[in-house]
Simulated scan of single mutants.
Amino acid sequence: MIEIRNVSKTYGNKSVVENVSLNIEKGKITSFIGPNGAGKSTLLSMMSRLISRDSGEILIDGKDISKCKSNLLAKKMSILKQSNHINIRLTVRELVSFGRFPYSQGKLTKEDWVYVDEAIAYMELEDIQHKFLDQLSGGQQQRAYIAMVIAQNTEYILLDEPLNNLDMKHSVQIMKILRKLTDELGKTVVIVIHDINFASCYSDHVVALKDGKVIQDGPTDHIIDSSILGDIYEMDIAIQNINENRIAVYYA
């Protein structure tokens, strides 16, 4: 379990995350939703230690992450940020192999390459695994980065808007894979996501943030509610039940 206790982050005079406390359950998909500027990505970055927190505690399986050694934390938790910038020219296969660095330190074993091959297959990248990243579409690149995270084989997977640049088919593919990783392999997935219907259909738990604070936190069926979503997004959002899923209708 990830425990977040009274965590805050301020940039200048602006409070980006304010006194947030919540628990992330093991073996579940937890989605962070909310408008732009709600603090979702900042909170995720503090959870992974990419940025420091100003106050509060974050514990993973009872241990303060600030006291964990980096190589051990990288075997426990992986993260994919929104913007991925690699300045060297890599093939898909080479990129995915970077996920094994915490284990191999760059000297990959046969076991490491098995994880690489499995991740490439998971993301259906076999046909383009030897192509360079700059030869791919934005969606193909995004799938390659997610494959790298899968190859890292951590118990906790943090993803910041992983559906960016993806069409409908591949967005569904990613969410189904995350569901499979959770249901079959017991992974714990935390995802920042803008599409509340993807959050509704694939998440076990939803954390709704606004202005740096947790407004609601609970099971998906509880959070995907007209009044709750209306307060968070400041618009009328109707909810319809379609194929046992709660679907938000906000286009009209």
Score class of each variant (00 low, 15 high):
G56W: 03
I60A: 04
E18Q: 12
S200A: 15
D112L: 02
R89T: 13
E244D: 15
S203K: 10
S227C: 12
I33V: 14
Q141L: 09
K187W: 07
A147D: 08
H205P: 05
G37R: 00
H170Q: 14
S45G: 02
V192H: 06
I247N: 09
E3Y: 07
V192T: 07
C68K: 13
V214K: 04
G12I: 04
S203T: 12
P102Q: 08
R89A: 13
A74Y: 08
S83R: 13
L50F: 13
S137R: 07
L90P: 05
M1E: 11
D64Y: 03
I86W: 09
D211W: 00
L22M: 15
G99D: 05
P219C: 05
I177S: 08
Y251R: 15
T91P: 10
K63Q: 12
D183N: 15
N36M: 02
I60G: 03
Y251E: 15
I239E: 10
K213E: 06
I196F: 09
N19R: 04
K213N: 02
L72G: 01
R49Q: 06
I120Q: 10
R5T: 11
G212W: 00
A121I: 12
H170T: 07
L108C: 06
G212N: 01
K180G: 01
Q142W: 11
S8T: 12
Q173M: 15
A144Y: 05
L158K: 09
A252K: 14
N87Y: 14
I4V: 15
N19E: 10
P219F: 05
Q240G: 04
H205M: 03
N23D: 14
E155Y: 01
